[in-house]
Simulated assay, not measured.
Amino acid sequence: MPLALLRRPDPDHLDIVHEGTTFRIAVRRRPSARRLTLRVSATSGEVVITLPARSTIATAQRFAASHGGWIAARLARVPERVPFEAGSLLPLRGVPHRIVHRGARSGVTRTGSDGPEPVISVSCGEAHVDRRVRAFLEQEVRRDLLGAVDHYAVRLGQRPTRITVRDTRSRWGSCTAGGALNFSWRLILAPPLVLDYLVAHEMAHLREMNHSARFWALLGGLCPEVDAAEAWLKRNGTALHRYG
């Protein structure tokens, strides 16, 4: 009888204790894996252990427990989450704005100032602040993306077939073989040069669906801020996932 039929179903998580702190670890089994591995997401703080086909849960538990110090150190590097609620500070186009709840009536979200401090002013029921701020940010990023796409479409003589905004984790933007562009809404949190660069990058893929020398030459001719934007993303990109 195959081993998989004899084994009990895997739990969805393991708990280990390190120096008085309990860590919850998601369990994933991957038949193609050759060894046990641990991963801590730099954006969400999720801890995942991946098991090969023949590893037992008891072995995984011991392995995770023996790496308690490593898990603790990695989790300490994960930026603290910033919820979309009254009083939170978040960047809008790279400029810190304070979320201010103005009341429950109008349902309008807008930017403004509260003395010297830029604010995102939200008028809605308190329970809906998170949703309203997220919708506002998506609206703003769509406006900026469409403006940048229009600019580069004139220069390239090509337009995408579709533009989609998502909350992607592994990519800030992408271009499909069919010419559809996808972007992370979190680009609205970065300085404008970053969004502009990402749009230029993906628009260049409409002509060069690769990262060849010809692609980089085309991109360099479209966007003079390639190096600055890449450097900003390398330093600060991960931190954008802490918001919301």
Rank of each mutant, 00 (worst) to 15 (best):
M1G: 12
P2Y: 08
P2E: 13
P2V: 04
A4N: 12
L5K: 13
L6K: 13
L6R: 14
P9L: 09
P9E: 14
I16S: 00
V17M: 04
T22A: 05
T22C: 03
F23H: 15
R24Y: 11
I25Y: 04
R28W: 03
A33F: 06
R34A: 09
R39M: 08
A42H: 08
G45C: 07
V47L: 04
I49K: 02
T50D: 02
T50Y: 01
P52S: 07
R54V: 15
S55N: 09
S55M: 10
S55K: 11
T56Y: 04
T56A: 03
I57V: 11
A58R: 15
Q61S: 07
A65H: 01
S66Q: 15
H67D: 08
W70M: 12
A73Y: 08
A76F: 10
A76R: 13
R81P: 02
R81V: 11
R81S: 08
V82Q: 00
V82G: 00
G87D: 10
L89E: 09
L89M: 05
P91S: 07
L92Y: 15
R93C: 06
P96S: 07
P96R: 07
R98H: 03
I99G: 00
H101G: 01
H101K: 05
R102T: 15
G103S: 08
R105W: 11
R105P: 00
G107C: 12
V108D: 06
T109L: 00
T111D: 04
G112F: 13
E117H: 08
P118Q: 12
V119G: 00
I120G: 04
S123G: 01
A127P: 07
H128L: 12
H128N: 13
R132F: 14
R134M: 11
F136K: 01
F136Y: 14
L137F: 05
E138Y: 05
E138K: 13
Q139D: 11
E140C: 03
E140F: 01
V141T: 14
V141R: 01
D144E: 15
G147C: 15
A148F: 12
D150I: 13
H151N: 08
Y152W: 06
Y152A: 00
G157F: 06
G157L: 09
G157P: 02
R159S: 11
R162A: 10
I163G: 05
I163N: 01
T164Y: 08
R166V: 14
T168L: 03
T168I: 02
R169M: 05
R169D: 00
S170K: 05
S170C: 01
R171K: 13
W172D: 04
W172R: 01
G173A: 06
S174D: 10
C175P: 00
C175K: 11
A177D: 10
A180V: 14
W185T: 05
W185Q: 02
I188P: 00
L189M: 10
A190E: 02
P191D: 10
P191L: 11
V194F: 00
L195W: 05
D196P: 04
V199Y: 00
A200P: 07
A200D: 07
A204K: 03
A204L: 02
L206F: 12
L206G: 06
H211A: 10
S212I: 09
A213F: 07
L219H: 13
G221N: 15
G221M: 12
L222V: 15
L222N: 07
C223A: 08
P224R: 05
E225F: 12
D227G: 03
E230Q: 06
E230Y: 02
W232E: 10
L233D: 12
R235K: 13
A239S: 07
L240I: 08
R242S: 09
